[in-house]
Design a protein around this nucleic acid. Structure first.
Lengths: 343, 343
DNA sequence: CTGAAAGCGCTTACAG
DNA sequence: CTGAAAGCGCTTACAG
């Protein structure tokens, strides 16, 4: 049963040529007489020969594989990013390995190590929250081209970063609520050890100040980028803060789902009693009733951009100035935000 | 800049030993004197040495990599399956490559080919709709252990299959609606060239017959497993079929979202005017208001089961009776189904 | 147009 | 406990 697959030597023997000749046929390189080519192709057919990429890669010192490491594969945001990365890479004959860290630094370090062992050509990495491991140095020491995606970390000066404009995103969401007349606006951000969590909160603060509203520390909360976190903080707020805010702003789609659920559970009408606006959308496929006012990044474009940068790094390793690419965001107004009720 | 990574020879030279000795240290195999081990480990540190898995795999004739090929990476059902696969495989020190076909046979064939070239140890495959390519023969000819997931195809007798019990699922969903008193029940299935689409419809038919209801061909429609398909068919039904059905049954989560959206757009109250029940849930993280009555499979368990079977195939290649593993389904009743309105 | 030799980085099988 | 030789499957660089 477990017969061995045929190798280039088997084909060569059968076609009565040297292995290198088979190689030339398979790769369409160099000159081959038509007659020889046909004999070789016949042998390939008969033996079901499939070239061994491991051996090719070992010889070429190049695998044509890159990896994309994200923090949460269950978030459609990241699967859409993955699509963008994959489409660009495939167009360049590069395969993409997709990895998921669950925000755990150890998983990230593990993956990077593993992928370097597998001689990956390049990496696109979303760092885990508060990342402080040694992977970066390691990658530099081993000359692995890489792009950092979505989040910046203090000491990553040596890498090109592709990310959304989180400060502006937080700013225009808050401005939208302020323009509707809200003054008590609560922000549920993600982790304070992730740059996007901090920057979205910073945009919120800037908008408030611009409108002469003094930020109330009780109304800015950091948590996690999860449904549970959004739910818990919203419930806590409803129970403890008086007067309640008239609007809530969440820093990603999962937090928004949790917050909306909490408001529902407590019978709070959206937007009648509290307006709800969020960063990042839910994909239309999963969302029969798009309801939340939202600032969207374009995750597909983000993936494309990151992949394009990486491909450039790989092919043209000379010209790689380190850049900080900041992609634009856009506001979509829906039914979940309205002027505050008159009291 | 693009200095080469260090190899086992570099380490050996530095530690003044033979490469094989370094290999023994790295792999913890054979006896090494403490003193030699320390010298080698120091050299490994200093040179930032990382073993090259390509070379190891080439030598071992084993990559410790398997692949999971699904039809739609944007469906949370499949990302959850992926989790199950990954967790089981990682526990066995096997890495998983995750691939997506978009239901396109050509992409599937491409991936299988590519993965075989990369000397993948095994495959878990969700066949694309109406699959009729040559990949199967190819895989058999090249002795690639594989598991077929979720869907059966006519001539796949040589492979173990892991799938949900679609006939029963369709049956209990329909029975639930019948028990509520519905008699005009419409089924929106997926593709008729996918076994799950056919079997869920078959379950529907059986339940109807059991309750003495003659299946109305106008009320059974095949389409695609997408939101668009669910939307279009529902709109068409609302415009053309009189009297309208009092209940709709959809064959997966995406179709349900489309159908729900269509009913909303036409101002049809669920379940007041039409009850809606579906196969497969939306994940809680994305769903602030779980509303649809649903038959669920356990996608995580499905992934685990498939991975477990594959691992067994890989480690114990002697004992591999071909099996058809059918996993149970379960009904969850929510607010989207109710008795039909009295007329 | 075709091929023999050497080597990519590692490890098996044998020796000592 | 350590090492020299050979080979995994392929391709580069050289020859003819």
């Amino acid at each position: 049963m477990s017969k061995k697959r045929s190798t280039i030597r088997d084909v060569a023997r059968r076609a009565k040529v040297a292995p290198i000749t088979v190689s030339r046929v398979v790769n369409n390189s160099g000159y081959i007489s038509t007659e020889t080519r046909q004999r070789v192709e016949a042998a390939i057919q008969e033996l079901n020969y499939i070239p061994n990429t491991l051996a090719q890669s070992l010889r070429h010192q190049k695998t044509n594989m890159v990896a994309l490491i994200v923090t949460d594969i269950t978030n459609p945001f990241w699967t859409t990013v993955a699509r963008g990365v994959e489409d660009v890479c495939n167009a360049h004959n590069v395969n993409v390995i997709f990895c998921n860290t669950d925000e755990q630094q150890q998983k990230l370090d593990n993956y990077v190590n593993l992928l370097m062992q597998r001689q990956i050509d390049g990496l696109i990495i979303v760092p885990t929250e508060g990342y402080a491991g040694e992977m970066l140095e390691n990658m530099l020491a081993n000359h692995v081209p890489s792009i950092i995606l979505d989040r910046i970390l203090p000491d990553w000066h040596h890498h090109t970063v592709v990310r959304g404009d989180s400060v502006t995103g937080g700013y225009i969401l808050t401005k939208h609520l302020l323009d509707l007349g809200h003054r008590r606006i609560m922000m549920l951000s993600g982790s304070s050890s992730v740059s996007t969590g901090l920057e979205r909160a910073e945009g919120y603060r800037r908008a408030l100040l611009e409108y002469g509203v003094t930020p109330d520390p009780a109304l800015l909360r950091f948590g996690k980028f999860t449904q549970q976190s959004g739910y818990d903080i919203t419930i806590e707020m409803l129970d403890r803060i008086h007067p309640r805010p008239t609007a809530i702003l969440t820093a990603n789609n999962f937090i928004a789902v949790g917050s909306q659920k909490a408001l529902d559970d407590r019978g709070v009408d959206i937007p009648g009693e509290i307006s709800l606006a969020t960063y990042d959308d839910l994909p239309a496929q999963l969302n029969p009733r798009p309801f939340l006012t939202t600032v969207i990044q374009d995750p597909y474009a983000m993936g494309q951009e990151a992949a394009q940068r990486l491909i450039t790094l790989l092919t043209d390793s000379s010209s790689h100035p380190i850049q900080d690419i900041v992609l634009p965001v856009r506001l979509i107004i829906r039914a979940s935000t309205a002027p505050p009720r008159q009291t």
